[in-house]
Design a protein around this nucleic acid. Structure first.
Lengths: 206, 206, 206, 206
DNA sequence: CATGAATGAGTATTCATTCAT
DNA sequence: CATGAATGAATACTCATTCAT
């Protein structure tokens, strides 16, 4: 009660049993739903536990704080995103820069549609600055790697181009979140086109 | 979260006297600071009152709920933005489309730098869908009006172009909020360039 | 909700209205009762608020954390004790060392009987080391001052003697807390006698 | 706090095998460390299990509730203390009363230094009144027995003298717990001296 | 109107204890 | 027996909002 917990860093506890593993997965998906539905601040641990058909105690067994839960989920989604991009890169060898750009653009949009909690998690205000920066850098590097294998090669600064793609992601976010905005869809398509044009310009005339 | 609207529609009460006007202004600016500093959810009415060197009682005198306060501030900022755009339009007659685009782009970035609470307010999750749509439509129309007076005229869908400019605003948000991101600034500049190119393409060759 | 309170030291808020002052007094007495009844850890803020016929919110209005409440009460009791000792000192000029010792001994026992929460507060585990030391030093000094005015004067180390009296306080605590222990009372009396003897030994034969 | 005793009296289960015995010992020592470190309330069953490199399940196998664990440990320590006193008594036949007093005084201090969890256990608030009284009586009797064999014999009430020694234990507690208090050490020595004097007075002049 | 005290539902989190494997 | 997951009542604390002065 009056514990003065030695400042041991709290950490997500790894489950040691199969049941635990399953539960963790269920809890994460429940958290995803609730974060997507309510946003980070308004999401409550109670609602997440309920969504997982679990007890609040079980939730805390594995995720000892709300920020840690959010972070665990964020990392999971980030891994999926990175895996997806890597996967795409493999299957897209030989694409033109412009084609690559469009492919990534579409992939990002699809990702956000599938994981609407992602922008919520990425945007929460309590992420340590450096972690935020690191995540962005990783993503940018993955996109850059993707663009680097374009044929003919891109002559402009590839990391910069990657940054652009990433920023355009933000727009994808909004468009994805607003299903009735027919207008937005056209804007989205238009931006996709702008990206294509830009990458064509950045391409060496072979 | 704990709002229990009484039967009568709550409305921001208009102050009857000069002193009231001043007080309202002070309260709004205080709210702006706190929203910018903490975000919408984490901002507390108490902190806002304190920031205004006022009491909660006084705050509630004018703004009977937190959402209403946010909305009042949001509307104020929207008015300023619209006024700024109108003003700019007047002073920019005869600009090329590309020049107009850049001008707006810069203006939006500057606006957000001056009013960092704006994206917070625009992003809060409890805005009625229709109000959100309306705000966006108004802004889009103002930008469209701006673009319409370009010389030579734009041949493509002007409202679409306006939508694009508006979406790019999101990127400005991030760039403005992250002062150390040198990389981001380059991306920002690059997007600005992309916009210019796109508008040049959309221009009738006179 | 996700507030990252800048690390402003939380402090007991001073009431600015008469009503507030009254309430603070009531809350402190309620806390005293509950701490005495349950001990520090087992005492709950809820029970304290209830004991004060107040709401939990009101309690927190003035005492933003449980440790702070305990500390405020502790300080209050310490003040009373010091005032009592000072007062006693005035009224006891000319007493012999042995008489002084007995007087203080009795006074301490009476104090603890009146304020049974005192040992609870003094013993809670989260008091900063230095504050604990300071309190003890203050008390020791007051007792020392008391002893210093004895006639004939004490020849031994007075501060040491004061320390002894203070330690004997611990015994008073137990004896006071255990009302049925007839045996304990005799022990208490015996210790009182030992103190008298010791102080007689420490006295200059005038 | 949340104990829901099932109908059958819960009792510390005696282990049937050697392995069980070892485990119990390890668990008790772990509990000792944690109680000493955190105090009774703040000590958690989980931390105790961890300290024992065991699981909560195992801990509960042997000690079905936290109070029962505390009590088992308390009894163990009490046994050790009693054994130690008995042992000392044997080896100290023929000592003077004053010498005996000092010997016990030192022995108690040493005991508490070795078993710092002892005062924590003895002080916990949920000990049944009668058990508390019984423990004290036992100890007092042991000390009395010790004093009874002094030469020359004590003429005053021996049980009373024993009570005094026991009360002085409290002071030993504090002095032992506060390693930096040089002042306290002097007080401790002084009390030891007072005890010697008192016992000399209580001795028949042979 | 201004002020600040009063209210209490709501939130994150803890921890003793139970139970399935 | 060992293990660690499951449970949920209990607790400290927050904050929008109301109201007496």
């Amino acid at each position: 009660m009056t514990s003065q917990k030695s400042s041991e860093e709290l950490k997500t506890r790894a489950p040691k049993r199969q049941r635990g593993h399953d539960r963790v997965a269920v809890l994460l998906e429940a958290a995803a739903k609730v974060f997507a539905r309510r946003g980070y601040d308004a999401a409550t641990m109670t609602e997440i536990a309920a969504e997982a058909h679990s007890s609040i105690g079980s939730l805390y067994q594995f995720f000892p704080t709300k920020p840690l839960l959010a972070e665990a989920l964020h990392i999971d989604r980030l891994e999926r995103l990175k895996a997806g991009l890597r996967d795409m890169a493999e299957r897209s060898i030989g694409l033109s820069a412009a084609g690559s750009g469009e492919a990534i653009f579409d992939a990002l949009a699809a990702f956000i549609e599938q994981y609407p909690e992602f922008p919520v998690l990425a945007g929460r205000r309590d992420i340590p600055k450096d972690r935020k920066a690191r995540s962005r850098a990783e993503l940018r590097e993955l996109i850059a790697a993707f663009l680097r294998q374009a044929h003919p090669p891109i002559t402009d600064d590839i990391v910069l181009m990657a940054g652009i793609v990433l920023e355009l992601l933000r727009i994808a976010v909004v468009v994805s979140s607003d299903p009735d905005a027919a207008e937005d869809r056209r804007v989205f398509a238009e931006l996709r086109l702008m990206l294509r044009k830009r990458l064509e310009d950045a391409t060496a005339k072979d």
